[in-house]
Simulated assay, not measured.
Amino acid sequence: MAKQSIFGRISTLIKANVNALIDSAEDPQKMLDQLVRDYTNSIADAEAAIAETIGNLRLLERDHQEDVQAAAEWGNKALAASRKADELRGAGNTADADKFDSLAKIALQRQISEENEAKAIAPTIAQQNEVVDKLKDGLNGMKVKLDQLKSKRAELLARSKTAEAQNKVADAVKSIDVLDPTSELGRFEDKVRRQEALAQGKQELAASSLDQQFNQLEDMGELTEVEARLAALKAGGSAGALGS
């Protein structure tokens, strides 16, 4: 009964559609991990059941072989007894000849008994051989499925890590997007531009103040010349340019 249950589990697991299970799972990775555990445990159970079945089969085969050998031995004993009886009867010893014929009959009866036991066990041996072959095929199929599950799990994990890395890169690129006015880099660039504008304003203001100072010097030079000419007039000179 236990072997039949194991065989049923093997058939069910072999027929399972891995891709369909993955598509319907909320968390494919957890589902695959559980499937790997289930398959591994089922394979261990199947191997134990198959080993037990093979052991019982070998016992049956050994018993069958012993029955066949025993039947052959009893047949040889019957032949030997029959020949001895013929030999004694030919020598005129009828009493001993009958005795060996009786022994031959007993041996033949034992031979028939052993042959019947061998025949009776033969169908069971054939059936058990079929069961063992099916269990072995099922076990091999489960091992193939287990390899597929492990490959799917590795593929899924690799895809998950790749997607995670891509998302991190995308987030990083977005955070330093120079075209994004709300980003830190955009605000820093705006601050720098305001500082540059302020410096430019201060430079222009300083230049304007310097020009004004030079203009004041020119005005003072003109006043000095006027005073000089006025002094020359008072001294009796003309109002023309000095030194003319």
Rank of each mutant, 00 (worst) to 15 (best):
M1W: 11
A2G: 14
A2M: 06
Q4P: 05
I6Y: 04
F7C: 08
S11F: 01
T12Y: 02
N17M: 00
V18C: 09
A25H: 14
A25C: 07
K30P: 08
D33S: 11
D33Q: 13
Q34A: 12
V36R: 09
Y39P: 00
A44I: 15
I50D: 05
I50T: 07
G55K: 01
R58C: 02
R62V: 04
Q65F: 14
V68I: 12
A72H: 11
A72R: 08
E73N: 06
N76I: 04
K84E: 15
A85F: 01
D86E: 10
E87L: 09
L88I: 05
L88G: 03
N93A: 07
N93E: 09
T94D: 13
A95I: 04
D96I: 00
A97S: 08
F100R: 06
S102R: 14
A104W: 05
Q109L: 13
R110A: 09
Q111A: 06
Q111R: 12
E114N: 09
N116Q: 11
E117A: 15
A120W: 01
A126Y: 01
Q127P: 00
Q128A: 14
V131N: 09
V131M: 06
G138P: 03
L139A: 03
G141T: 02
G141F: 00
L146K: 05
D147Q: 09
D147N: 06
D147E: 06
Q148M: 06
A154F: 09
S160V: 06
T162S: 05
T162K: 12
K168T: 05
K168L: 06
V169F: 02
V169D: 00
D177G: 00
V178A: 07
V178M: 03
L179N: 14
L179T: 10
T182I: 03
G186Q: 04
R187G: 07
E189Y: 08
L198A: 10
L198H: 09
Q203G: 15
E204L: 10
A206P: 07
A207I: 11
S208I: 04
Q212I: 11
Q213G: 07
Q216K: 13
Q216P: 08
D219G: 14
E225P: 00
L230N: 11
A235S: 15
A239W: 02
G240F: 00
L242V: 10
G243T: 00
